[in-house]
Design a protein around this nucleic acid. Sequence first.
DNA 1: CCAAAAGTGTTTTAGCTACACCCATGA
DNA 2: TCATGGGTGTAGCTAAAACACTTTTGG
Lengths: 243, 243
Amino acid sequence: MLTTKKLKPLLPQEDYLPHVAYDCVIFGFDGKELKILILEYHNTGYFALPGGFIKVSESIDTAVKHGLKERTGLDNIYLEQFYTFGSMSRVAPDTMRTILKANDFDCVESNWLFDRFISVAYYALINYNSVTLKPDEFSDSINWYAIDELPDLMMDHNEISKKALQVLRANLEKNLIGMNLLPDKFTMKELKEVYEVILGEKLGRTSFQRKILSLDILIRHEKLYTGGAHKAPYVYSFKTKNN
Amino acid sequence: MLTTKKLKPLLPQEDYLPHVAYDCVIFGFDGKELKILILEYHNTGYFALPGGFIKVSESIDTAVKHGLKERTGLDNIYLEQFYTFGSMSRVAPDTMRTILKANDFDCVESNWLFDRFISVAYYALINYNSVTLKPDEFSDSINWYAIDELPDLMMDHNEISKKALQVLRANLEKNLIGMNLLPDKFTMKELKEVYEVILGEKLGRTSFQRKILSLDILIRHEKLYTGGAHKAPYVYSFKTKNN
DNA sequence: CCAAAAGTGTTTTAGCTACACCCATGA
DNA sequence: TCATGGGTGTAGCTAAAACACTTTTGG
């Protein structure tokens, strides 16, 4: 740990909308569990959702896309805004002060980052394996955590995560969720497992197969020989992707 | 119209969160159509959704409740936050300048109200007949408009209204919508009509009756003698209200 | 030839629609 | 007693679940 670092200049207030932030619950599926990305701030013990601020010249959507690109290296992420958190309990100047100090920022007593912030919350669905995780300048790690094994997060971030999962569940039917959490090609079993971890319950194998196939959204490809001593499953892809 | 009015002081910036507003789509059912409340600003020709700003000392939810109380006289309104609008096309300083000038506000060139605003949008469901409408100090009328006969609204308020209706439709099943749009006691026919105007389609009389009754959320009361030459319908209320 | 997993056929069930019938009401 | 509208019974349809059966694969 360098102790001779110079104090860094703060994010310039005039470039950003004061009082407005975004937070993002980024879901991924590792083949077994549903996970989200959590970052840990330097030297503070604070765990938090990836988030950021809105430039005065960009829309909220654009700001979120830029932030995700930086953290994950991914473009064209599936994003859904789901709630804006604006309670008074979100005012936590001490927390922000601690983070800035621990990051050697030139931190004056009165600063826009210590003010009250409302947070526009999004959830994202990404392909677990295509991510290159990059901690931002405030944090020394960004890692996957299973949704039922989250650490204590700062401020209301546990609440935000919980609500994100609720909304994801409610949207499961109408949006083609699997498309974003799986690679381009996958087996029916993998798709079923995605649905199961999101819903938190086991689904009937045959019911699921027929239900999904009846939606007419999948293309069946070649069989997948895994080396297992059993019938090889077909590989599928979503119709809207590629062809 | 008084022309000798003194210039009024502006909303003091230091009391409010800059760049953050709320807008509210207030639904009511007049027995025939689904309507929303629209206000018209003095001397501008601008129609708009009721909205307002957030005090630094209150949560967004609280701010919205206060605003609705002022406009409608109602407490305990059913409220649902459904989206936050934050695109760059929302920056419209000229519109705000016109409104302030037309209202004789003491309006300097550079003012926080001319800045970019993001808007947290809510929809409300209220009982059409229990409302006492009060225009605020910017507007000279607040009136009901059928959802398919809205005037041109300022900025993105038409888009906000449209999205509100979409979300209301999507939430129709899971939330007990009728409870908030109807008086405490109502007939099955009235409840069916509420569903029909929200969904924009006719529903089968008998299917609807059985579906709703099977949800086990209604209490059947006495019969209602309307004077019509036919069987008197039962009156119902929702279980969660009263008893 | 066996076990495991995948695909599909068949039966059962549940919910919903549509129709019909009966009832209550006031003219 | 007739017309109107409300409540409910019943038959039929359809979607989904449960189960069984068959197929494919490697050991």
